[in-house]
Simulated scan of single mutants.
Amino acid sequence: MHRYFGRKTLIYLLTFIVAVTLNWLIPRFMPGDPVLRMLTRTSVSNPEAIAPMREYYERVFGLDVPLWQQYVNYWVQLLKGNMGVSVWLFPTPVTEVITRAVPYTLALLIPAILLSWIAGNKVGALAARRKWLDNTVLPVGYVLTATPYMWLGILLAWSLGIVGGIFPVAGGYSFELRPEWSLAFVGNLFSHWFLPFLSLFLVAFGGWAIGMRNLIIYELEADYANYLETLGAPRSLIRRYAFRNALLPQLTGLALQLGVLVAGALVTEIVFAYPGLGYLILSAIQNQDFFLLQGTFLFVVIGVLLANFVIDVIYVIVDPRVRVGMQGAS
């Protein structure tokens, strides 16, 4: 078992190094000059003042050294927990900007992923043995899972927000309110949160429901199910075994789809101007903020890697065959 987790840790570590390297490279391929853009925003009218200001900002941002040295400095500062200073919100540190946005993204992602996975598996299992439900779940599930996150978000914002006037369509909370632990503010937060959550939930729900429905049908036609039925085992017992066996591929699918779900959440935040990491990435691109873009991407990569590692651990716990194989290998 120690050898298995050691191998897994090494794979995740190598993936992290490659991801950090790409994360450092990609913003530097972006067109434009972030320092020049910042000087333009400050409306410097004296041409003689541009040169010393440019020299100062390049020194602050670490852009006055060769690329290889920027890369080494990036790793050194990263290991210290320093992701640099935001160009867009200068002189606010990148970590502080990201810390403000992370709770909004996690509040969308965690409920959407968990609830869609649980509800999708339950409904898919029911659809596999109820014809009327199967005739409903299958076409609806195919439509939902094929729907782009952005398009569904726009549709929900138009129907329930603009036309229906039930939910707000932009922001994390109303501008006239101040963040505080009160019933009015929490209710306002919920109303702004619901539409982005619903768009993420519906797309993911369709995929999990179809997957579980197909897996249950396969399991019920397997040899062990036919054998148990021949022995006179109750149908409920056979279905329970089929559901447990079908959950394992769905758990693996959760690990594989995690990156897609995170990307969907980031796009959904842009549609609803929701103040999470997705909206932060858009603002960083628009303002050519290298450091904020790097920091946001890095946080997303680390989050996905940690979530996949947790799913790997859970898979070992819930599947006894993996544990037996690991013990035999050791």
Rank of each mutant, 00 (worst) to 15 (best):
M1T: 12
G6E: 02
G6F: 11
R7C: 05
L13I: 11
A19Q: 06
T21V: 13
N23L: 07
F29A: 15
G32D: 07
T42K: 15
N46T: 05
P47S: 08
M53L: 15
M53E: 12
F61V: 06
L63N: 04
L63H: 07
P66F: 03
Q77T: 01
L79Y: 08
K80L: 10
G81H: 10
G81E: 12
S86I: 05
S86M: 08
L89F: 09
P93M: 12
V94I: 09
E96H: 12
E96I: 09
E96W: 03
T99Q: 14
P103R: 01
Y104H: 12
T105P: 00
I110N: 04
I113R: 03
L115Q: 03
V123L: 15
V123W: 07
A125F: 00
A127H: 08
L133R: 10
N135V: 08
T136Y: 09
T147K: 04
M150D: 00
I154E: 07
L156A: 08
I162Y: 14
I162L: 14
I162W: 07
G164F: 09
I166V: 14
A170K: 11
G172A: 06
R178P: 00
R178W: 11
P179S: 06
E180V: 09
W181I: 11
S182R: 09
F185V: 08
N188A: 04
L198W: 06
F201I: 01
F201T: 02
L202C: 10
A204M: 12
F205N: 03
G206S: 09
G211N: 13
G211R: 10
N214M: 13
I216E: 11
Y218W: 04
Y218C: 00
E221L: 07
A222F: 04
A222E: 14
N226P: 00
G232P: 04
Y241F: 13
F243N: 11
R244M: 09
R244V: 05
Q250P: 00
L251I: 15
G253S: 13
L256Y: 11
Q257L: 12
A263M: 13
V267A: 14
V267R: 03
T268H: 01
A273Y: 02
P275S: 02
P275Q: 00
G276V: 00
L282D: 08
S283E: 14
S283C: 03
I285K: 06
Q286M: 10
Q288E: 12
D289R: 09
L293K: 03
T296P: 02
T296Q: 03
F297T: 04
L298E: 04
F299H: 11
V300M: 05
L305W: 03
L306F: 13
V310M: 13
I311D: 12
D312L: 11
D319K: 04
V322N: 05
R323D: 07
M326F: 08
G328M: 15
